[in-house]
């Protein structure tokens, strides 16, 4: 069958995706090992891992493009191995690489896939038009594909994914190589789709952006899930799942002995010298209770240390991720 039959879809289960004991081996390399997780309808899930961690393999299996060595994946209640054609009606796939057809315009590319997905005549025209408007491709409609910039190409790829109006979208490194403006536009598109109740599964190396876009983060390392939860929870964790400490960083000026901030830090428990400068220093205090941070700062001022600037330091997702990997190793 070359065109997807369009029927009234059955109601989708609340657990839109269920991955159970997923394992994928290529000869002696175990790309994915005993992976299990669930994605609920309407969630935006960030999928994070280093190169070779097994992200793309997992995503390809979920998208019916690869077969697991063992384990099961259900999308919308359908087994991806048993009924790939049913699963394909639910999913949109945006690969990490985007190539171009020669002698084909943006409109023709979308029109081809709209035809392939079974849209006819006016319905097809409307669908292509809607997608081009949504992804801001209308001004590029007649531009040859090979004359598109990286950002434009990603938008086209994104638009193609949206053509069948999928419930579940799998995006493999969608923001890779995009400039800041294009990244911002992409984030906005994701936000709109999330508001419309779509379920998105996005892999990326840019953890801070995923933290902003996603409800849930899934960290994968060496083919295994090492974290599944919210970004705030991860930021606050100290790497082993327990709530960690907040930290304030204080820049101080030195008028007399340059070693005085270091001495002061040594005499006051909890404080540590981060950096010694020619005309000042940078100190830090970490504490579980914010009141302890306020007390520590007050004591510093009362002791006559010349505070120039202070700020509470948020732990970056990247740091949290690195800490977690170190703990595991």
């Amino acid at each position: 069958m070359s065109e997807i039959e369009k029927k009234t879809p059955p109601p989708l289960p609340e657990k839109l995706v269920e991955v159970r004991g997923l394992h994928r081996a290529f000869d002696k390399v175990h790309a994915v090992q005993d992976l299990s997780f669930e994605i609920h309808r309407g969630q935006v899930v960030g999928f994070i891992g280093a190169n070779g961690a097994g992200k793309t393999t997992t995503m390809r299996i979920m998208a019916t493009l690869d077969s697991p060595s063992s384990g099961t994946v259900y999308v919308g209640g359908e087994d991806v191995m048993q009924h790939p054609e049913r699963v394909r009606r639910l999913i949109g796939w945006m690969p990490d690489s985007f190539g171009t057809y020669s002698y084909m315009t943006v409109f023709e590319y979308l029109d081809f896939f709209a035809r392939a997905y079974g849209f006819k005549a006016k319905e097809r025209a409307e669908r292509v038009r809607d997608v081009m408007d949504f992804a801001d491709l209308t001004p590029l409609a007649e531009r040859p594909m090979n004359k598109l910039s990286k950002g434009m190409g990603q938008r086209l790829c994104f638009g193609r994914m949206l053509l069948p109006d999928p419930e579940f979208m799998i995006l493999d490194e969608p923001a890779a190589g995009l400039d800041p403006k294009a990244r911002m536009e992409f984030k906005n598109l994701v936000r709109i789709l999330a508001q419309r109740g779509k379920t998105l599964f996005i892999s990326s190396h840019i953890l801070s952006e995923l933290g902003e876009m996603c409800d849930t983060l899934l960290f994968i390392d060496a083919g295994k899930i090492v974290y599944h939860g919210g970004s705030e929870q991860l930021r606050r964790s100290n790497g082993n799942g327990a709530d960690g400490k907040a930290q304030i960083v204080v820049d101080v000026a030195v008028t007399g002995d340059p070693q005085s901030p270091a001495l002061w830090a040594a005499m006051n428990p909890g404080w540590k010298l981060l950096e010694q400068k020619r005309d000042g220093a940078r100190l830090a205090l970490a504490a579980s209770d914010p009141a302890d941070l306020a007390a520590g700062l007050r004591k510093m001022i009362l002791d006559g240390v010349q505070v120039v600037e202070f700020h509470r330091e948020e732990r970056k997702l990247e740091d949290a991720f690195v800490d977690m990997i170190k703990k595991i190793q």
Binding site: S2, A63, L65, R88, I91, W93, P95, G99, T100
Partner: peptide, 13 residues
């Protein structure tokens, strides 16, 4: 070159 084989498979070609 157009990264199309996967996309064609997803369109059931």
């Amino acid at each position: 070159r157009a990264s199309a084989p996967d996309l064609l498979r997803l369109a059931n070609y």
